[in-house]
Amino acid sequence: MSVLAVSGLGKSFGAVRAVDGVSFAVAAGEMLALIGPNGAGKSTCFNMLNGQIRPETGRILLGGRDITGLPPRRVWRLGVGRTFQITATFASMSVRENVQAALLSFHRRVWRWWRPARGYFAAEADALLDQVGMRAQGDRAAGVLAYGDLKRLELAIALANGPTLLLMDEPTAGMAPAERVALMALARRLAGERGIAVLFTEHDMDVVFGVADRILVLDRGRVIAEGDGVAIRADARVRAVYLGSGATSGGH
């Protein structure tokens, strides 16, 4: 069974139909890339999946359960981790504390008033940081990290609730090419090891074709193609709409 199954998802902003009847599914351990030119509706799609935007039409099923219209914090609790296009971390906390905060929430220890938070789940946080290669930087302030490191920290935070579905919005934007490959290889490995379904958007076509199991192409809110790298490369409509629009490998 698919981890995530989306059917007929739709949302308009004024007269603009940002997402229009999008349907797809992601299986456990699978990496699905969501691509498309700017304004294709990728971010809107993402924001509906984790509950930031309420869809107007369609249903979102997570492990068979309808999560349509739930707020982000409920969606998260059902096992959806997320990274943001513009990183969102807690600047007044250290790297480790950022992960600890997520763990506190996951283990429902937020409404505790006495014992210092540093003592909660430190080892677990370090283990997560270890996975993304950030353990050595655990004591640094999140506010002073380099951009690539922030992205990795976000990944660690997103993994804190042991997600079945990971949503990664432009996970490699702003990173050096070598870093991108490393990060996505990491995501690939985690997806395989833990059986996490990963849905990601990405501008870098090398990354997309390098790691995605399957690719979904959006244009003006609609799905215009779906398939593996070979099929997408060969798809005439994709070439016309997407590659023809000028965006090539590595472009923004």
């Binding site: 930031q52 969102a88 807690f90 600047a91 906390m93 937020v110 409404w111 505790r112």
Partner: peptide
């Protein structure tokens, strides 16, 4: 309380409301 989990959660909502909501707060 500021050093306790609640204080962290509070700071989390200040630092990044988006992220706070996305980790279930």
């Amino acid at each position: 309380v500021l050093y306790a989990p609640f204080g962290y959660a509070l700071r989390a909502t200040r630092d990044s409301p988006l992220r706070a909501e996305a980790i279930g707060l």
